[in-house]
Each structure stands twice: as structure tokens, then as C-alpha cells.
Design a protein around this nucleic acid. Structure first.
Lengths: 139, 139
DNA sequence: GAAGATTGATTCGTCAATCTTC
DNA sequence: GAAGATTGACGAATCAATCTTC
């Protein structure tokens, strides 16, 4: 699995860069902001969902805000917190990137599987995600 | 799969660091050097096998040579090339790390699968590795 | 005092350029 | 001129420390 991930990720990353001007890390961030919708999502919550540290997310959001894809807004309920939302441009860029990404996943992964295999893999992976989430919660 | 990888890799990386004083990247490099054995392996060949650039590998091997785990030796057949071999310490460190890593893989991954599922996944992943290797050979 | 977020120092990876050997 | 490897400049991620608000 490590090998697959190591082989496929660079391919998808390259395709996203070329066709959507986004790296895969950024795509992941935009995805979670997109899914949040309505009032956006907290920085700390976002940092937990993507594979990046809190401070790493700060600088990444800095860059995306400069590019006009994201916007920071104050949290109405907690003055310590900052919420992040997609701009018009960010929404557009994400939708375009999502199409590219879906095509990548299909071509590099799903096309190599039968339906039965895909079902089994989905089942297993979901189970592992669930198991890990419940047991090994690192500090 | 991205999610699993993002969740498991940090766990295994942390365990390797704590119990074997190696990060997962380094483990991967030592593994390939270990598998080469007898005369070692070329830097460029190693760079292709692990997920890292040529120059990134140079600096990583620099650090591992300073720690006394690896050693550079001239290639007897090609004076441009440099071969990398494990030192005694490197061999010992790798064997220890391998034990830790195997235990991690079992606990975080294999234990969540039935034998049938493991077989199917192995089959599928091998097929994908093979397919990718034959089609998308990036320049 | 703890949670949310940022900043600064350090570390490491990548890219382009360079040097040597084929 | 191409392949093997290294170097230096630059970008970005992590950790610890800091500031503000709860």
C-alpha cells in the first residue's frame, strides 16, 4: 500500500498542478472547507482533518488567501477562533480541481479494480478508519 | 486510501522514531540497501526506488553516513557511480527497526483484515503496481 | 489555566546548475 | 553529449514559544 501510495500520489499531484494549478495538499484543504460550507470551518478543526500541523496550516492558508481562494473571517461565537471560507474564485477553482482529481482516481485506481474488489476494499478501509479512530487517538 | 495512509503513516513513523530512532523515510532507504546486499546499490538506483529526489537522497545519505549507518564506496565498474552499503551498525539498526515496523503493520493494518480480505488486497495492489509501472512512466 | 491561532528558528526536500566520468 | 552525483538557493513543514480570549 505504501508503494501504491508512493506511486499514485505524485501522478495525481502532477495532474492537479498542470490542469488545475493546485497541489494535492491544497486540494485536500479546499475539499474540507468546501464540505464545511455555511460559516466556514475553524483553523484548528481544519488542521485536525488534513495531514498538516497547526502552524503549517496557518502559512498554507496565508498563501491561499493571497491567491484569493480562501478568506479568513472572525468566528461570531468565539473571539479566539477564526473561520475559513471559500471565495468565489476558490469555489470555482475547487470544482475544477475536483473534476481533474476524480478523473485521476478513476484512471489510476478504480479502472484497475473489478466492482467486487472495489466493494471489498471500500469495506475494509472504512473499517480500519473506524478502528483507528476509536483506539489510537494520539495526544 | 489517502485517509488510511494519512492516519497510519504518522503512527508507524512515531513508533519507529521512539523504538528504533529512525523515521519511516530512513527505514525505507535502509530497506532497499539491505535488499541490495553484496556490493551495495547505486545512489541513482536507490533514488528511483524510494520516494525522494536525487539531491534529497544525497543529503539523507550524508546524514546516515555521519550516524554510521551507511557507507559510500566507489563503484568498481563505473567511476561516475557511488554505491551505498550498510555498516555493521546500520545492519543492526535496520533489523531492529524491521521488527518494530512489522509489529506496527500487523497492529494497525493486518489485524483489521480477514485472511480472504488480505489476499484480495494483496492481489489488487500488486496488479495496480504492475499496471502503473507499465503505462505511466513519467519522464 | 486551557484553547485558538500565529510567529520564529530550525530542518529538510526540491529544482536548477555544476562537475566528473562515460 | 549523456549519465551519476553533488551543491546552493529557495520553499515549506515542524516544534516550541508567545499572544489573545475563553
Amino acid at each position: 500500500m505504501m508503494e501504491i501510495h508512493g506511486a499514485i500520489t505524485p501522478l495525481m499531484d502532477a495532474e492537479l498542478r498542470e490542469q488545475a494549478e493546485l497541489d494535492i495538499q491544497t486540494y485536500d484543504v479546499l475539499l474540507h472547507v468546501f464540505e464545511a460550507d455555511e460559516g466556514g470551518i475553524r483553523m484548528s478543526s481544519l488542521a485536525r482533518q488534513v495531514v498538516i500541523s497547526k502552524s503549517g496550516l496557518t502559512t498554507l492558508v496565508d498563501r491561499l488567501e493571497e491567491r484569493g481562494l480562501l478568506q479568513r473571517i472572525p468566528d461570531p461565537a468565539d473571539r479566539r477562533a477564526i473561520r475559513v471560507i471559500l471565495t468565489e474564485n476558490g469555489d470555482e477553482a475547487f470544482r475544477k480541481a475536483a473534476a481533474v482529481h476524480m478523473a485521476s482516481v478513476e484512471r489510476h485506481f478504480l479502472d484497475h479494480l473489478t466492482d467486487d474488489e472495489a466493494r471489498i476494499i471500500a469495506t475494509v478501509l472504512n473499517r480500519i478508519v473506524h478502528d483507528i479512530g476509536s483506539t489510537a487517538e494520539p495526544s
